[in-house]
């Protein structure tokens, strides 16, 4: 692989069309279900319940005819980040931890069994969130997700929030991501051909670090903003005059299965929330 292939990392969370039942669900259903699973995950402080939820997500992955291993491998790059968060929680949350046993105390750092349990819980909860995002993007095209969000948020339009504009903004963003990634690769190669590298500044000089990367960042922004100017003209030439008088082409349909899935995920939330799960501390 080449040092310039920036898009390579974007394979995580890509849509895999296995045409399973999960794929065929309405995007709104999947968004709502994800929301209720997230609510369920935050409604319990039990590590056991959280692990069960992860197990459930693995089950859904199988149902979507996607290898669980594939999803887990996609989460792997987040490991250092998760570790860093755990360390931060361990160092800076101890003082708020009310616990009879204290393993170790030094200054503001206080390690207690309760805290350790919460740190582990935090890490697992993050895994759930990342898992949900992967599962959603693996089984739903990005454009469907955006249409789902737009339709779900549509009621907010009535209270004056610019939901249509927000959705269109995100569609344009999605449209431009591959274009910009490609452009970035080309610019990086072109500057490298002129002997450029984008580092080399000492760590205590952020201004020089930033400056070393300007040959990449400035053209990226300038070219992209120029594209934006052209896009504005092209959209207006195609009669885009704002939301007024517009109709929508994409049509989303709920089926019985959709209602069932939404109902089940609400039920899951209530059950997880109401069950007195065992905790260690």
């Amino acid at each position: 692989m080449s040092e310039f292939e920036y898009l390579r990392n974007v394979t995580i969370g890509q849509y895999i069309p296995t045409e399973s039942t999960v794929h065929r669900l309405d995007p709104r259903t999947k968004l709502l279900a994800a929301l209720f699973v997230a609510l369920a995950a935050t409604s319990t402080r039990s590590v056991l319940a959280t692990l069960l939820l992860i197990g459930l997500l693995m089950g859904v992955t199988r149902l979507a005819r996607i290898e669980v291993r594939y999803v887990l491998r996609g989460l792997l790059p987040a490991a250092p980040f998760v570790a860093a968060l755990m360390l931060m929680q361990l160092l800076f949350q101890g003082r708020f931890s009310v616990c009879e046993t204290v393993y170790w105390e030094w200054g503001f750092v206080r390690i207690t069994p309760c805290l350790i349990e919460l740190v582990v819980l935090g890490a697992l909860r993050l895994v759930i969130f990342l898992f949900l995002v992967s599962l959603l993007t693996l089984t739903t095209t990005a454009s469907h997700i955006l249409h789902g969000i737009e339709t779900l948020l549509a009621p907010l339009q009535r209270i004056g929030l610019p939901v249509h504009e927000f959705a269109l903004t995100n569609i344009i963003a999605l449209r431009f991501i591959p274009i910009i990634a490609e452009e970035m690769e080309r610019i990086a190669k072109a500057q490298a051909s002129r002997g450029g590298d984008f580092g080399g500044a000492p760590w205590w000089r952020p201004d020089r670090m930033a400056r070393a990367r300007l040959p990449l960042i400035v053209p990226l922004f300038v070219n992209t903003l120029r594209r934006a100017e052209e896009m504005v003209v092209a959209m207006e030439a195609r009669c885009y005059l704002g939301r007024k008088g517009r109709t929508k082409f994409v049509d989303l349909h709920f089926t019985g299965l959709d209602w069932l899935v939404i109902g089940l995920s609400v039920l899951l939330w209530v059950v997880v929330w109401r069950t007195p799960w065992p905790t260690f501390t």
Partner: peptide
């Protein structure tokens, strides 16, 4: 609320730039 086409598009491309900077690691020092 009256939002111009330009605002919509500029916001869109800036979000796309954020995403690319984040994914490629070029947004981090």
């Amino acid at each position: 609320m009256n939002i111009s086409t330009r605002s919509i598009v500029v916001a869109g491309v800036l979000i796309a730039i954020s995403a690319v900077l984040a994914y490629t690691g070029l947004g981090y020092f």
